[in-house]
């Protein structure tokens, strides 16, 4: 059945027509998923709700542009991942601005007060790995990032991805392959120049 004519497609049409109850249903249907995606990327519990609110505000304002080429969850997923990377970018800029206001001694003290990734206890090695992967993912395009995350983090098959995105399976495979190659290249660059990312 054509996605536009499914139950969810009808729900989206109602929300596009301005029916508040339909938009509320969309929020309630996907809020847990959105929280989980955000937490997986930014891992700042305090900021998860704020980013999630921003995601759904964007969904609200862009819903009229949703053209049913992909499923709603794929679209929401993409907005969520982009929002997370926006947040990480802004956080990085804020940190740079903050550090530029400090003297060299203050910067050194601040850096020493942060737990260095290499010296964290073993229990935190997963966090370091997550940080590293998040940085690597910032080196590929939005589409590649979304596909990789849907495949590896959400565990969808190529067949499911084809259904969700409206692309054929071979296209998905080629895109994923290129994205994986880019990640490996980014990892090589990162190893050559530690702290460059």
């Amino acid at each position: 059945m054509d996605y536009e004519n499914t139950q969810e497609g009808t729900l989206v049409h109602r929300a596009q027509a301005g029916e508040e109850a339909a938009f509320r249903e969309i929020v309630e249907r996907y809020q847990t998923k959105v929280f989980s995606i955000i937490h997986g990327i930014v891992r700042q519990r305090n900021d998860v709700e704020d980013i999630a609110q921003q995601v759904f505000a964007k969904v609200y304002f862009s819903l009229r542009k949703f053209d049913f080429r992909s499923s709603l969850i794929t679209w929401v997923y993409k907005i969520t991942v982009n929002e997370c990377y926006d947040y990480l970018r802004k956080r990085k800029v804020r940190k740079l601005v903050y550090e530029s206001d400090l003297s060299e001694d203050e910067v050194r003290r601040t850096e020493n007060s942060e737990p260095a990734i290499d010296h964290r206890p073993l229990a935190d090695s997963n966090l370091a790995r997550q940080d590293y992967v998040t940085k690597l993912l910032s080196k590929v395009s939005e589409e590649e990032r979304t596909l990789l995350m849907l495949k590896e983090v959400e565990g969808h098959s190529v067949e499911e991805l084809a259904g969700m995105t409206g692309m054929n399976e071979n296209t998905i495979k080629v895109k994923l392959f290129r994205a994986r190659q880019k990640l490996l290249k980014a990892a090589q660059r990162l190893d050559r120049a530690p702290g460059a990312v």
């Binding site: 989980s36 990327i41 519990r45 999630a52 759904f56 997963n126 590896e152 983090v153 994986r180």
Partner: peptide, 28 residues
């Protein structure tokens, strides 16, 4: 690399607190 990517799988993500929709509406 695939194993590293899978490390991003959500673990104990916070649940949306009650009234989340109302807060989204206020933001909109």
């Amino acid at each position: 690399m695939s194993g590293w990517l899978q490390s991003l799988r959500g673990e104990q993500a916070p649940e949306p607190a009650s009234g989340f929709y109302a807060r989204v509406s206020r933001r909109i």
